[in-house]
């Protein structure tokens, strides 16, 4: 093999770079997912759990557009129940903690909603 030293150094650098997620997380973090507690006495969310997990931002987006752009504040009927179209009063009125629930999951998935530049996070319960 020609330039043995350089080739081996190159391969080692390659392996360090591709295996970055493993050694980085092993050294500084944790491979286990966070424990999510919805912090509520209710049994069910606005929609079923799977839909909420994947689509809650669209639900909020819809409500926001209705209220802010179409001046349609009326309650929405979802699965026989009426809900007020509100980020703070509905979602965080039932989910008692932004930190322990929404934020924990968002940090895990590296999502940074900019809603809180204007909206106020209610007091934690």
């Amino acid at each position: 093999m020609h330039d043995q030293g350089k080739v081996i150094a190159g391969i080692v650098i390659f392996l360090i770079v591709v295996l970055f997620p493993i050694w980085y997380t092993g050294a500084f973090g944790d491979f286990t997912p966070p424990n999510l507690d919805p912090v509520t006495d209710a049994k069910e969310c606005v929609k079923d759990k799977a839909t909420m997990t994947a689509w809650h931002m669209d639900l909020l987006n819809e409500w926001r557009n209705d209220v802010v752009r179409n001046n349609d504040r009326g309650p929405v009927l979802i699965a026989g129940k009426e809900w007020e179209k509100s980020l703070t009063r509905t979602c965080l009125g039932c989910h008692g903690s932004y930190r322990k629930f929404c934020h924990k999951c968002h940090t895990y998935a590296d999502v940074k909603p900019d809603c809180w530049q204007c909206h106020v996070v209610p007091e934690e319960r």
Binding site: P21, I22, T25, F31, P33
Partner: peptide, 27 residues
């Protein structure tokens, strides 16, 4: 066509940590 993004990360981290989650439950 969204799916559970946090669940996707659970799978990714599980693979890296050599303890993959229960995929049937993740859905």
């Amino acid at each position: 066509a969204k799916t559970d993004v946090a669940g996707v990360k659970e799978l990714g981290m599980g693979l890296l940590g050599f303890s993959p989650p229960n995929l049937g439950e993740l859905g």
